[in-house]
Amino acid sequence: MTMEIVGIWLGALLTLALYSFLYRDNPFYKFTEHLFVGMSAGYWVIYNIYNVLIPNLWDRLVGTGDAAPDMMMIIPAVLGLFMLARLVPKGAGLSRISLAMIVGTGAGLSLVTTFRTNCLSQVEGTIIALTGAGTGQFLSNLILVVGVVCGLVYFFFSKPHRGVIGGAANTGITVLMVAFGASFGYTVMARISLLIGQVQFLLFEWLPTIPIFRGLTG
């Protein structure tokens, strides 16, 4: 039995154990669910060490190749250790310093980048010419502009939603409902494609490894 066959069987048994939840909660599902949590945690820790800490901290600290050691990298190393001080009740104060650094830098980064990409670029994309591209395009552009403005009015809570503002907010809700429906449909289809992938794996990779089913699935 090759390692490839072992891998296929492992994957198939774990997949079937997880799908057994569709019948009802059972020990096979619970076992696999817990295994997934443990292995995923282990995966992300190792991934973090090999892809973040070694290239960005260790290699620069010791100076690989022609690069000289960068002693300034001791600072993030110490701050990282301070973060772990949270595990010791008396050292919780030290972790606040690391947390402050993360929060401050993260806030500064997200303030500018989010404002640029999610606000300014989106506003820029909404300021479009309504005319000059045929009736269909005119209607689409009009719905886009009115939809964005009315959607924003709905999120504006400093004025009561009455009169003109109420009407605009109502239109905003309608646009948002269509958008949520589209996002919902899109998400469901993404999940369904994963389901199809797993069923294909069971049918075309796992089943042919069982002698009596060999040749049955083409």
Binding site: F115, N118, I143, G147, V148, G172, V175, L176, V178
Partner: peptide
């Protein structure tokens, strides 16, 4: 996807980004 969905998503994104700026 291209018209009403984009309009709704843009409204959410612009509103959320203003919230991020204020919180930051």
């Amino acid at each position: 996807m291209q018209v009403p969905n984009m309009a709704g998503q843009r409204a959410v994104m612009i509103g959320a980004s203003l919230g991020v700026v204020a919180t930051s």
